[in-house]
Design a protein around this nucleic acid. Structure first.
Lengths: 194, 194
DNA sequence: CATACCACTAAACAACATGTTGAACATTGA
DNA sequence: TCAATGTTCAACATGTTGTTTAGTGGTATG
């Protein structure tokens, strides 16, 4: 019964790998199950033994990505939570995120482009937003001085961040995560000086 | 020969209207040409007399939206360009945009959701970004003091703005364009105070 | 008034995509 | 060994796409 588990896992991985590969040259919408199974050299029916449909396939890849993102941020926050200033924590959060993006850039390059599935940037931002909310709510000085609803402020700041990431990816990752972190800090302090 | 032009125009409009209507309940990908023509009570072949395919139909609606957005911003800039301070111009730009969004919220609600087509928020941001770039490049004090590449700053600020818009729409337009403008200003000044 | 024209319809077409089924084959465990 | 189980496959019915061909009922024009 052991060889079956292995075989199943391998076929499922093959489908996911092949799918991602095709996604580099073709948009999600235009990819057919046949495209995937022909390239992977398996029967089309086999696909349906592993995934409900195209969307299920993408969902599983997406969700693994979001889970991984959450794990990274959680780890950071548990070790940094009260040992540093808010500004230092912000900086480390940015650095962690840019590193994460660099690590997953092959997938993100596709998901954030128009080759991906509609609404990805919203789902990504929501996953990210949840983590930032936790970080902000712990901070009294923010809750007290912020006049606008927290959800609006969160949308503003996480979208801005995501905008930087999208530009970075569009530029073919022309900078290191460290450079992106200082670029982020430079933009914030530029706004502050006006 | 005039009645023909009228008939053609009306059928084309009917297709677009019906399409937008269906888009409220069904995702772009899952809508078929048959869905549209059955609802509009026209022959399926007629669709192809007006549009190349589903994408062409959506493109034409998108492009009309972007053109309209550009027109609004251009009008604003030509009348305000050098008669006000940079901050006042920013505020009026924000107010203009929020009004535009409110006016087109039925379409934008769909296009920005996962019922729309992948990459819309990128195309929308690009259209918007071009106009803001023009505004920023005219301003010497920004070009001189900004250490980071303009494209990154543009991505940051236009994405942040789009984030506010998305949240606003998600909240079912719970505020007036005027309230959104002061909300925007409040967020900026909150960042400045830190 | 005849006729050429136009937007649209109806029906049929091949090509292709989808999701399901039952059969084939390999592996497992009693 | 052999029945049960797991994986894969070929074939099927169904639905969508974009094109084509023939035809309808109005409209313009000489």
């Amino acid at each position: 019964m052991n060889i079956y588990i292995e075989k199943n896992r391998k076929t499922k991985q093959l489908i996911q790998k092949t799918f991602m590969q095709i996604l580099e040259n073709k948009s999600f919408e235009s990819i057919t199950i046949g495209d995937i199974t022909k390239t992977a050299q398996i029967n089309r029916g086999t696909f349906y033994l592993h995934f409900k449909d195209k969307f299920d396939l993408l969902d599983q890849i997406e969700q693994r990505l979001f889970a991984d993102l959450g794990k990274h941020i959680d780890e950071l926050q548990s070790s940094y939570l009260s040992t540093h200033t808010f500004e230092k924590r912000q900086e480390h959060l940015a650095a962690t995120l840019f590193s994460f993006i660099e690590m997953h850039s092959p997938i993100l390059k596709i998901f954030l482009s128009d080759h991906g599935r509609a609404g990805f940037h919203i789902r990504f931002r929501d996953a990210f937003s949840e983590k930032v909310r936790f970080n902000l709510e712990k901070n009294k000085s923010i809750n007290d001085n912020l006049k606008v609803p927290l959800e609006y402020f969160l949308s503003f700041i996480t979208s801005a961040f995501l905008g930087l990431i999208e530009q970075w990816i569009r530029n073919g990752l022309d900078k290191t995560p460290q450079e992106m972190t200082s670029l982020y800090i430079d933009i914030i302090s530029f706004i502050q000086k006006r």
